[in-house]
Amino acid sequence: MIPSIPQSARSRLLRTAYLALFFLFLLLPLTVVVIFAFNDAPYPLPPWRGFTLDWFFAQGDRIGLFHDEEMLASLWQSTRIALWVTALSLLVGTCNAFLLERCRFRGQRLLSLAMLLPLVIPGVILGISILAFMSRLAQFADDTWGVELEFLRPGLPLIVLGQFSYIVSIATLTIAARLKRFDTALEEAALNLGASRWAIFRTIILPYLRPALFGAGAIAFLLSFENFNTTYMLTGSDAPLTVLMYGRMKEGATPVLNAVSLMLMLFSALLAGIVYRRKPD
């Protein structure tokens, strides 16, 4: 109940206990992941055998994260994918935002609903449907023109397209929400003063949208980096990080996975920090 309503000491105690347990539950898994990244044992399991940085730096019997070629390659692969997805999502998301907020045409309402659709399709299905459709296109190109379109087979371009297909919906929502609150009087004033459409876009609208672009970009990058469901269906020979981690976890986890996880958490925290500090409202 709200504070202004009298409450027995017992129920207040119960609520505090519940909250404490809830947050313990929330933080426990992350805490053990961090702790066992530093355990001097070949598996990330108890008992505690002493502190070590081997799982980050070792190079010999144990291979630490920074010398694990396969892991580093997958990190790079994930980064490239995330950069592509972020760039594409921001570009198309901005176009979509203008389409929804600044244009009037028939079917606009329908289109704005259709843009939300990818968010309610399970990621696995997004992945396999794109896989199937692109394979058909590749097959068609092969049969009719005799050309092998490699980029339509599982690999980086398909992963980018698969992730983009739903992340752009989120980018669109974020950017459109900010564009909606833009005061068009500013634009009219600039027009009256003789500014060109392009100049207005560059010097007034784009700076105004910057926080939304920044936020949407960070979220797109993070969602792409962490995506598994869609990515797993579209991966070719070069596994991105999540797919590689999944494979290793099935084989039996080593503390290198904890080390990567710790780095991922630090990186996301950094990104989150930037986004929230820049958020004006």
């Binding site: 933080l27 426990l28 999540t242 996301s268």
Partner: peptide, 25 residues
Amino acid sequence: LLLLPFWASEMVRTLGWVILLRGSG
């Protein structure tokens, strides 16, 4: 605090639960 686990990826969260719940965990 609520957001924290969700900025960490699903893989990390799952790894945490595996370490907690496994027979030798």
